[in-house]
Design a protein around this nucleic acid. Sequence first.
DNA 1: CGCCGAAAGTTGGCTGGCCAACTTGGCCCG
DNA 2: CGGGCCAAGTTGGCCAGCCAACTTTCGGCG
Lengths: 255, 255
Amino acid sequence: MPADPDRATGALYRTVAADLREAITAGRYGEAGRLPAEGALAERYGVSRGTVRQALALLRADGLVTSRRGTRRVVLGTARVQSFSELLSFTHWARSMGEEPGGRLESLVRRPADATECELLRLEPGTEVYVTLRLRTLSGTPVMVERTVYPPRVGEIVAELPADAVSHTEPLREHGILFTDADHTIDVVAANTEDARLLGCRRGSPLLREKRRTTDPTGTPVEWSQDRYLPGTVAFSIHNSLASSALSRHARDGD
Amino acid sequence: MPADPDRATGALYRTVAADLREAITAGRYGEAGRLPAEGALAERYGVSRGTVRQALALLRADGLVTSRRGTRRVVLGTARVQSFSELLSFTHWARSMGEEPGGRLESLVRRPADATECELLRLEPGTEVYVTLRLRTLSGTPVMVERTVYPPRVGEIVAELPADAVSHTEPLREHGILFTDADHTIDVVAANTEDARLLGCRRGSPLLREKRRTTDPTGTPVEWSQDRYLPGTVAFSIHNSLASSALSRHARDGD
DNA sequence: CGCCGAAAGTTGGCTGGCCAACTTGGCCCG
DNA sequence: CGGGCCAAGTTGGCCAGCCAACTTTCGGCG
């Protein structure tokens, strides 16, 4: 597990970004302080100004610094930045918080995909999919119910995993299934009978629902999941800006 | 209201991005189709490859296209993209959906900021803040309760607005208060007595809560707001990717 | 002393070019 | 006919430079 996602590749601009991020988080430029000019940073790191700008674009997107023409960049916050995989994988996320993640497979069935599943996973009508139902725990206490639909190529691998496997995404990655893009939708839903039984809450009590569709680098969907969290266990947090926004709000249009 | 946020500035790369976005949304490259090579696009638009890459980076961040070294970009989805202001402003958002937004000011008080407000708005202890409570409606039906804390500079302007003003952000912009960055946190909360009365639901029934802190280009906080939505009226949707992530999930740490 | 304008400093935007890393498809050979 | 190798195509990354737009500062002038 790389300590710093920015340093994952050998790219220069990621190294610079990682260094600046570390400096900002350590408060070395102060809250609401000013960053050195791009040119100065370029000289310090021995790279071109373009490379520095690439690095700063990363920090900008994470909401660590502002950017305005005419004046130096201002430090916005000493942000908690989390990697893509921490968002995608319950296991990664839990571990990054120092909690002990757990997972119990309640059921795994193979059945023909319905219409919406075919649409979302981009499959031919009638293709068989693998559907898992898992109860996820943090340090032993149940916090989330996860219902995931996998296309055959992925499902075949999942089906081979032991029932008490904590992480599914890690073994999948080792089998060459890559997760690179995800669309998330967050809303509130009432617990059904099954949710209530697994999570130990009352039927109809509110749950925070995250719907997620994940694709690999070729754009092929690899996962379609509905996670339902007990209230008070998680919150989702987003930064967006005029410069680059990744979030949208929209009307609910019935599952 | 600009039809396309990408064309807001006269920047070339935004124009290119807007054109490509339009083409993708119109399905001109097909679902899961391939985009022309960067070089080809550069020639078509008469710009350098660097500019095309800037444009494609925008689409990449929105999850419209993938990008992988060695092969052409693949169209991921025909995404519903929303601008920063649609996320920030209930009014903009509602109008973009063709709904009629409404707002009724329930109360506006001026009082000393408490400790957390000072922290969040970066104010000296004891500074007076303006606190508004508004009921927001879509086509007449209540959907959201909005509690916003403004620092003096901003609150003074808000206090002058008529009680039935639909939008607050628009007049603020005209007074030179700019919104450029926002941090959002989304979770579930139970309706208190006031929420229940305003929204017409039962006390204790679940609401989708969005906490938001907005800053201007200098990094100065201009707004701190808690919005509570009736379930079923909104969902939040996010795209993130290995290439650039803007979302994080974290444990709830009690208001 | 205060206001205004000029100059310096800084970021946004764009160009053109170069090489490396990677994917794909086709060709050649066994 | 199949497998492996090679070349072409494509994106990632980096550089050096230029100008425009904007902010801030500072000095001169009223």
